[in-house]
Design a protein around this nucleic acid. Structure first.
Length: 605
RNA sequence: GGGCCCGUGGUGUAGUCGGCUAACAUACUGGCCUGUCAAGCCAGAGAUCGCGGGUUCGAGACCCGUCGGGCCCGCCA
């Protein structure tokens, strides 16, 4: 093996005259018959190698080189002839004139091209390979400059997190992966115990209880780059295993956590993106405000189009379906779409139909609309039922002017809010209201403590059962639990929930009241959470923390839209990892050892 | 559990109203070529159109089923 002296990203004009050895992958080959150019690639960059017929052996070898051969090249660095420089390469001022070329390993034709088209490649062919093929040959996919950049970015981001927290006196502490299943939250991934047949470990959904117990232990400021596991259905931004930056602090309140994490987010944005540094403090909304104004607990505040409530304006309306909705106790909410009234009648009807599909996904039965044409009469079929005063009042409330359209949903507050919140996001994209390159952080605070679970007929913890209620709301925990606010907060970036946390309960009595509210009998609570309750009797400091979704954070920093683009070996939406073929059946002997038997009808062992 | 969309040479796509001997780019093979950098030019090979059934004189296209994939709803303390 020829040992490399430099990487493919090292050489500059000042290195001209040196003899070097480079090693890497053949990225592109340009064969002029006599003169052959090879672009040699490694993770540091690309360097052009020139092979002339003067070096016969190297020339013959270079003729046989194909894409992705692994090569080692010895040669002299020289400045490229005037006018032949390539400004798009960092090494573009120089080239290496090969004296020796070794094929370390050839490569068969690849299942897809490595070259990616993220920048300045108008080709339709590269970089859009089906995701299944990419995952099946992930080691090839990961050679692509785009994914290499993402993985390198991920390393830098995690290093910045460690450095930042270390500088703030935090300790990185590991917690168990094999732990105990708890009744709250998502479905657990279970691991059978061989030593204790019939018993199971659970993989942690988060290190929540352990980090709190580390506070009880006096570690004061803890963090961990923690792998978490949740057996729920997947999305573009959800994997069955994902990574959190888990943080917990003692003797702090909400403001301390918010300040710490805001600083971290600002630092990462400044160090890792070209974006304008976000200014501190980050804007803040209460949960109630976020829902009312944006129809979401994770608002994208990069654009306006806030939701409006029209209930008071339509109290005496003659419009039948709205009158009926309000009489039934439902709400009428609206959002404006600037400029949409300028569309032709047919275009507008098609657009409305598409938007109707959006709101229907979220349970709305229909989408009403009013247009305010700059000239001519309204195209809306229902405009004629509204009084002139109503039309004017709606326009004013929604800040809609000539040329705009107002969309309305009359439904339960939950449905109307969610549906229009999604429509708002769609309008923001369709109308190009989102300027690229922004990092719009937002804190959402004052979440409700609990949420009514219609199916189960009980209260669920909105965040988790260790979240403390606001002191001033505590007396309503039994009389009106739904109105109790929690010391809980989420950080949102560009409409994506980056993370959430809370100030925890640190008193046994309060924790017992919380379990009671959630429907756990004292016996059940003792069985599942006895260690927590016990700990609270041995000197537990006031404490709180947060967990940030690292995959999502990196995704946004990298400008990607799926966390799979920033995870080296992700699973697909079926929770399958196509490269290794995970999950898979196991030998009967393995099951026997665990005293397990599958009842699956298909593919059963 | 449910909704929408997609499966055509290795890869990415086109294929309109059912008439195809399935087109284009790239990769691949061979040839030409001393300054390219998405190298270029010439030639060639490569596809039973995911699978099964149906409608039809005729199906890549239409219908039913099935498998695989993507996005979403539910779910995700």
């Amino acid at each position: 093996m020829l040992k490399r002296t430099h990487t493919c990203g090292d050489l500059r004009a000042a290195d001209a005259g040196q003899e070097v050895v480079l090693a890497g992958w053949a990225y592109r080959r340009r064969d002029h018959g006599t003169l052959i150019f090879l672009d040699l690639r490694d993770r540091y960059g690309v360097t052009q190698v020139v092979i002339t017929p003067d070096t016969l052996a190297a020339h013959e070898a270079a003729q046989r080189v194909r894409s992705e051969f692994v090569l080692a090249v010895r040669g002299a660095v020289r400045r490229r002839p005037a006018g032949m420089e390539n400004p798009s390469l960092l090494t573009g001022e120089v080239e290496v004139v090969a004296s020796e070329l070794v094929v370390e390993n050839p490569a068969k034709p690849l299942p897809f091209e490595i070259r990616d088209d993220l920048e300045a490649n108008p080709s339709e062919t590269a970089g859009r390979t089906s995701e299944f093929a990419r995952l099946k040959y992930r080691y090839l996919d990961l050679r692509r400059p785009r994914l290499q950049r993402n993985i390198i970015l991920r390393h830098r981001a995690v290093k910045l997190m460690r450095d930042y927290l270390d500088a703030h006196s935090f300790l990185e502490i590991e917690t168990p992966i094999l732990t105990k299943s708890t009744p709250e939250g998502a479905r657990d991934y279970l691991v059978p115990s061989r030593v204790h047949p019939g018993k199971f470990y659970a993989l942690p959904q988060s290190p929540q209880q352990f980090k709190q117990l580390l506070m009880v232990a006096g570690f004061d400021r803890y963090f961990q780059i923690a792998r978490c596991f949740r057996d729920e259905d997947l999305r573009a931004d959800r994997q069955p295993e994902f990574t959190q930056l888990d943080v917990e602090m003692s003797f702090v309140g909400q403001e301390d956590v918010i300040e710490l994490v805001s600083g971290l987010c600002r630092e990462l944005t400044m160090q890792l993106t070209e974006a304008e540094p976000p200014s501190l403090p980050f804007p803040r909304l209460t949960y109630a405000e976020a829902m009312a104004r944006y129809g979401s607990d994770k608002p994208d505040i990069r654009f306006g189009l806030e939701l409006q409530d029209l209930g008071d304006l339509l109290a005496d309306t003659g419009v039948g379906f709205l009158k009926a909705a309000l009489a039934a106790g439902n709400v009428v909410k609206a959002v404006a779409a600037p400029g949409l009234a300028g569309l032709s009648g047919q275009k507008l009807r098609e657009q409305v139909k598409a938007y109707e599909e959006v709101v229907k996904i979220y349970g709305a039965k229909g989408l009403a609309w009013l247009d305010y044409p700059a000239e001519g009469g309204p195209k809306s079929p229902i405009a004629k039922f509204f009084s002139a005063a109503e039309l004017a009042a709606i326009a004013e409330r929604c800040q809609a002017g000539p040329g705009d359209v107002v969309f309305m949903v009359a439904d339960t507050a939950r449905v109307a809010t969610a549906a229009l919140g999604e429509l708002r996001l769609r309008l923001g994209r369709d109308l190009n209201l989102i300027a690229p390159g922004q990092f719009a952080y937002l804190w959402v605070v004052d979440f409700p403590l609990v949420d009514w679970n219609e199916e189960e007929g009980r209260w669920d913890a909105m965040h988790h059962p260790f979240t403390s209620p606001k002191a001033e709301d505590m007396d309503r925990m039994t009389s009106d639990p739904g109105s109790v606010r929690a010391n809980a907060y989420d950080i949102v970036l560009n409409g994506v929930e980056l993370g959430g946390g809370s100030i925890r309960i640190h008193q046994r009595e309060v924790q017992e009241r919380m379990f009671q509210l959630l429907g756990h009998s004292p016996e059940a609570a003792a069985l599942k959470f006895g260690h927590m309750l016990d700990a609270f009797e041995f000197g537990t400091p006031p404490h709180g923390g947060i967990a940030l979704g690292i995959d999502r954070f990196i995704m946004l920093l990298a400008g990607e839209t799926s966390i799979r683009e920033v995870i080296p070996f992700p699973k697909n939406q079926q929770a399958v990892e196509p490269m290794t073929g995970t999950p898979d059946v196991v030998d009967k002997a393995q099951l026997d050892l665990l005293q397990l038997m599958s009842t699956a009808k298909k593919d059963a062992v």
